[in-house]
Amino acid sequence: MTASSDRLWGVASGLGAGAMWGLVFLAPKFAPEASPLLLTAGRYLAYGLIAVVLIAPRWRRLAPLIEAGTWRALVWLSLAGNLVYFAFVVVAVHLAGVAASALIVGMVPVVVALWGLKDGGGPPASRTAPPIVLAAVAVGLIGWRALSHGHGVSGGPTGIQTLIGLGCALGALISWTVYAVGNSRWMARLTQVSPHDWSLLTGVVTGGLALLLAVPAALTTQGWTGGAWLKLAGVCLGVALFASIIGNALWNQASRRLPLTMLGQMIVFETVFAFVYGYIWEGRGPAVIEILAILMMIVSVVWCVRAHGPAPIAEEPLH
């Protein structure tokens, strides 16, 4: 596979992951009665069960490839990129709304790309800084428009609630940045493990950790009817399948094919799709300023691809 086609598949995988992950921001809207702890436990228990079923036929081949240090890495990656991140997102969406949450989490591309500039083999900052700045401006435009129109919980959040929601969105930003960087570097080390298998291993570990949340999460369901449980099960299974199984597998493909500075730009797609899904949920189309911001994001990604030139990605190792 040539370097250009490798990059193309990496970008396509990043776009697909963004489309799947954007659904995460709607999960609290589909099941508003579920607590953040319950949604987190339910989603990742479902993820873990699906991962166990899918990985079982290949377990004998995979087990010798995973050392103790790798298991430890899977634990903290599962916490940072799944349990902690999603719990923060659920609280943020409830208290600050989809728009504000997607705005802050949408700054992940900027933070990851800036972090990635420290890696050897990447292009100079003079080539990557303009698309990074463009992405930041685009996210700022979308956020400014959304926040100026107000968006919060039913009846309107208090100032303290909104502040807590924004703080949780910031926590999600930090948590996912740590995951994105760490996951990319572990993927580069474990070339003998396929992106799909790495996603399933992460799912198995995440599911095990989610078991620890099951009992306290169940305490938040007093008075629930059978219909509420069915809705919760549908939301958890749907998010687990599309966002966790499919989305993570696509992201790991992108992580293996793209350098970190470029990989950070791919996370922009999650923000774009989160807003698109939000428009569908609210039954409206994007405003002119929102269309402009989305176009700026797309230009930012294309610009970043070109900034990396024709050099083979295999010659740009992540450390």
Rank of each mutant, 00 (worst) to 15 (best):
S4P: 04
S5C: 11
R7C: 12
L8G: 10
G10K: 06
S13Q: 03
G18V: 11
F25R: 01
F25S: 03
L26D: 03
A27C: 02
F30I: 02
A34S: 11
L37Y: 06
L39M: 12
L39H: 03
R43G: 04
Y44E: 03
A46L: 00
R58D: 12
W59N: 12
R60W: 08
R61Q: 15
A63C: 13
L65I: 09
I66Y: 07
G69Q: 11
V75D: 10
W76E: 08
G81W: 05
L83K: 09
V89H: 07
V89W: 04
L95V: 13
L95C: 13
A99K: 04
S101V: 09
S101K: 03
L103Q: 10
M107E: 04
P109I: 08
V112K: 01
L117N: 07
L117F: 11
D119W: 13
A129W: 14
L134V: 10
V139G: 01
L141M: 14
W144L: 14
A146H: 08
H149E: 14
H149A: 15
H151N: 14
G156A: 08
P157E: 12
Q161T: 11
T162I: 13
I164F: 13
G165Y: 03
G165V: 08
L166K: 04
C168I: 06
A169W: 04
V178W: 11
Y179A: 10
Y179G: 05
N183I: 12
N183Q: 14
M187E: 01
R189D: 09
Q192E: 15
V193H: 02
S194E: 13
H196P: 03
D197Q: 09
L200C: 12
G203H: 01
G203S: 06
G203D: 02
A210K: 07
L211G: 09
L211I: 13
V215C: 06
A217K: 00
Q222N: 13
W224R: 00
W224L: 01
G226R: 04
G227V: 00
K231S: 00
L241R: 02
A243D: 05
A243S: 13
S244Y: 05
I245N: 00
I245S: 01
I245T: 00
S255E: 06
I267S: 05
T271H: 03
V276K: 01
V276D: 04
G278C: 05
G278D: 12
Y279G: 10
P286A: 10
L292I: 15
I294M: 09
M297S: 08
V302I: 12
C304M: 14
R306V: 12
H308V: 06
G309D: 01
P310K: 05
A311H: 11
I313F: 11
I313C: 12
A314F: 10
